[in-house]
Computed example of a mutant assay.
Amino acid sequence: MIEIVAHNTLWKQDFAAEANAVASALDLRLTTVHHIGSTAIAGILAKPVIDMLAVSPSLDALNTATPALTALGYQAMGAYGIEGRLYFRKDDAAGRRTHHLHGYAAGSPQIERHLAFRDYLRAHPDIAMQYSALKQQLIADDADYIEGKAPFVLATEAQALGWYRQQPRDY
């Protein structure tokens, strides 16, 4: 059963603390860590799991950091269905999922896709609210959550990428 909850303002702090731990563990094998997913978008419903996007000079460099991430409590899942990604997940002591870490090599188009979607929803609260309402409806209808939101995500990603590529960035 998928759980979605109201936005929690502490998610931003949780991300920052975990990103610092990951950055310290990865040392020079990391370029940056971004907060992505619904917990990174104020005001919308989200699964209470912090999604992070780690950018590394290469997947090999990130792969060599697996022992350091394991020491932080992460489980290495390999590509986990997405070519060019290294995926890690972390659970708390009670076995509840707390973090997802999506690792990509610098220059991967997946990085732009994730950041565009996040930034687009942040800049367009009306669309973010549509996304939140869709997620709430899928849960209420006991529908397939991932498949049910896929058409919205794909359509919004296409809009987001066009918009994102026109935006000035400071990162």
Rank of each mutant, 00 (worst) to 15 (best):
T32P: 03
Y145Q: 01
L30H: 11
D126E: 15
A116L: 04
I44Q: 03
I4N: 03
M129H: 14
Y80K: 09
D60Q: 06
T39K: 00
M129D: 06
D170H: 11
A155M: 05
D27Q: 10
Q167F: 09
M1I: 08
D27M: 05
F88K: 02
T31M: 06
P109G: 09
N20D: 01
A46I: 08
G162L: 12
P125M: 15
I2A: 00
R118S: 01
A71M: 08
V5I: 08
P109M: 13
F15Q: 09
E147D: 14
A93K: 13
F152I: 13
A42T: 15
L161N: 06
V55G: 06
Q166V: 04
G84M: 07
M1W: 02
Q75V: 13
N8Y: 13
K12D: 05
D92W: 10
L86W: 14
L53V: 09
A155I: 03
V55A: 00
A40H: 00
T156N: 04
P151F: 15
L72S: 05
H35R: 11
S132C: 10
E3Q: 12
I82A: 04
V5P: 04
A79I: 06
Y145G: 07
L53Q: 13
D142H: 02
G107H: 01
L28H: 12
L86S: 06
D51I: 11
Y104K: 10
G81C: 00
L154S: 03
Q13I: 14
P48T: 14
F152D: 07
Y80W: 15
A143D: 01
L53N: 10
R85N: 04
I36H: 07
E3N: 09
S24H: 05
F15P: 00
G81S: 00
Y74A: 05
G162D: 07
I139A: 04
Y145L: 05
T64P: 02
P151C: 11
W163T: 05
L154G: 06
E112Y: 04
L26M: 15
M77H: 05
G107E: 02
S56C: 15
W11N: 04
